[in-house]
Design a protein around this nucleic acid. Structure first.
Lengths: 154, 154
DNA sequence: GTTGAAAGACTTTAATT
DNA sequence: AATTAAAGTCTTTCAAC
């Protein structure tokens, strides 16, 4: 059993603020303060502290890939051939259609997510990787859980 | 060859706005306008249009899981046993440690990402799923590509 | 679709509890 | 840590191009 670490503790007010920001990161401090039951200066100070503590790592925008011409998304598992790990990692990083990639334990070394305009485009991207790695590709049909917050209460 | 669809077209100004928002979704309209080379009212109007066109689907906050007590992340591939697909999907949706999940083609039916406090917690979560599905779990060791924008230019 | 100017709204500072 | 009030800044509206 670990000692509870105060640095990790989010009180109800912090939780309400994070939930409000997850719904809309561009709300005004005034609205954020209302959501949390605080005055604007208090909300501003808590927000500053959440960033300072490293709990909030970024405020970002979600783009709908299908709205900008990418109707298809795939998850690709990648197992580089011996000696090809770093080259493969660089290819992934330099291929902008990869919008996420994790390095993992197990038979697969990388698991990436990519957006494409067509199956032909996917084929072209995978052909480059297949020279240096085994790949296994799954097309995304639906997204039952879409990027939600980790549980905030302890 | 598709006909170019005007609804998809992002001009350089839109691209600069989206890139600025991806760096920090809470910048003021004034800063956003400066980044795009516009006046504030123009930036406000374009931002409104990007939302209206469905290109921006949300402004959100990125939380650092390790900063709130989740030092481990895993990617789990899940293949429900015959007749168990919907139950498994519901279990995933109701398990808050799953912060993302996609339904995919291929042998795996679901690919999910989850955050946990310990390997013991992971084991408990997987035990519940294993009654109804085959699972294959990879622990995340690093993240070579962290949630970036799809390519914006055509 | 963009601009500049003015009115209105929000954010920040500072003093206080 | 939180609050109120006031000063400063930003956002929104609107007339004009």
């Amino acid at each position: 059993m670990g000692v509870p670490n105060a640095a990790l503790n989010l009180d109800d007010t912090d939780q309400r603020m994070l939930e409000a920001l997850a719904r809309n990161a561009r709300i005004s401090l005034k609205e954020l303060a209302e959501a949390a039951g605080l005055s604007s200066p208090s909300a501003a100070e808590r927000l500053r502290r959440l960033e300072e503590r490293g709990i909030i790592s970024a405020f970002t925008v979600d783009i709908a890939p299908e709205a900008i011409g990418y109707p298809l998304q795939a998850i690709v598992r990648i197992r580089p051939l011996p000696g090809q790990l770093h080259v493969v990692e660089r290819i992934i990083q330099e291929t902008p259609e990869f919008i996420e990639c994790d390095k993992v334990t197990g038979d697969d070394c990388f698991i990436g997510r990519l957006v494409v305009r067509s199956m032909g485009e996917l084929d072209g991207i995978l052909d480059k990787i297949t020279e240096r790695a085994e790949t296994n590709t799954s097309m995304i049909k639906a997204t039952p859980v879409k990027r939600r917050l980790p549980p905030l209460s302890h």
